[in-house]
Amino acid sequence: MYVPAHFAMTEPEVAELLANAVTADLISPTDDGLLATFLPVLYDPVAGSLLGHVARNNPHWRATGGQSLAIVRGPDAYVSPRFYASKAEHGRVVPTWNYTTAHVHGRLVAHDDVEWLRALVTRLTERHEAAAGDFSEDRPWAVTDAPAGYIAGQLRAIVGVELVIDRIEAKSKLSQNRSEADRSGVVAGLSAGDCAGQPVASAMRRADPTC
């Protein structure tokens, strides 16, 4: 990935991006070409891995030879030239896109152990139920709420995948190459726009409190 020095992420920033990641595009080489799967993930900083699962009928879990790549995305948003203070000064501005992303390289390992899978889907469920809010139940849904036999059947229908991380390329493009006035304008513009822009505005504030 092309990463100019002013867009490079620090190790703590990379760790935060991976910890907050909820999905990734997993890409692996096969004899028939590249195979890609979008899947929910968990980052395990102790093991240095990204964890997920795929349907047993999905051949991706068999693609364990060679290097695989997981593309993790943070917030992203369109940046209009209207946001820049420099537009009024000289007009030499064009649209762009602000975003954070990481390319996570590593070795893919398949897990066909029921208890490993049960632990993973429990962790995934607890994480996302906690963020889902309280709509109709007094407590979040748990894996144990479903009949045991049904869950056992569902676990037999999936295979766990673990990307053991070798290296990470990460990029945070948040207008660092613009003036302070332009950055402040981008934050204001994104904050006033749709929901997609607001997380990027928040990320820019964290990266540069002067915004």
Rank of each mutant, 00 (worst) to 15 (best):
S175K: 05
N57Q: 14
H111D: 08
H128C: 04
R82E: 09
G48L: 10
A110G: 04
R183K: 10
G197L: 08
A110L: 11
E180A: 15
P140Q: 06
G48M: 10
G33F: 00
H53N: 07
R205P: 01
S68Y: 09
A192D: 11
F83D: 12
T23G: 02
W141R: 11
A102E: 13
A146V: 04
E162N: 00
L18D: 14
V109N: 04
P45W: 04
A170Q: 09
L69Q: 10
A131K: 15
G65R: 15
P12L: 14
V104N: 03
I151M: 15
A207Y: 00
G106D: 13
T144F: 02
H53R: 13
G66N: 06
T125M: 08
R206Y: 08
V22K: 12
A170G: 03
A5T: 09
G66R: 04
A196Y: 15
G193Y: 03
V104K: 12
A70P: 01
S202I: 00
A36H: 02
A152W: 01
R62T: 04
L155H: 13
A157P: 11
K87F: 02
Y150N: 03
W116D: 07
R167W: 01
L117P: 10
A47V: 01
A131Y: 03
A77M: 11
G153Y: 09
I151N: 09
E126T: 12
L155T: 11
L51M: 00
R118C: 00
A203T: 02
D208E: 03
D25E: 13
R167E: 07
A130E: 11
T37W: 00
T210I: 01
R92C: 10
L174F: 07
L117K: 15
Q154N: 14
Q154C: 13
S28I: 04
S172M: 11
L50P: 04
G48P: 06
V14A: 07
G74Q: 11
G106I: 03
R127E: 04
N98T: 12
A63L: 04
D166Y: 00
S191Q: 09
Q67P: 00
D182I: 03
R156L: 08
Y78N: 09
H111Q: 14
V94G: 06
A196S: 14
P59Q: 13
A47Y: 00
A196K: 15
H103F: 06
M9D: 07
M1L: 04
Y84G: 13
R56C: 07
S175Q: 02
T37G: 00
I27T: 10
R167H: 02
D113V: 14
T144I: 02
T122H: 08
A146N: 12
F135T: 10
D182E: 07
L39Q: 12
Y43H: 15
G52Q: 10
A55E: 09
V161M: 02
L39A: 10
P95Q: 05
A207P: 03
A152P: 01
G133H: 09
R183A: 03
R62H: 14
E180K: 06
M9Q: 12
E180Y: 07
I168T: 08
V187P: 00
S175C: 09
T37Y: 00
A24D: 00
A24L: 03
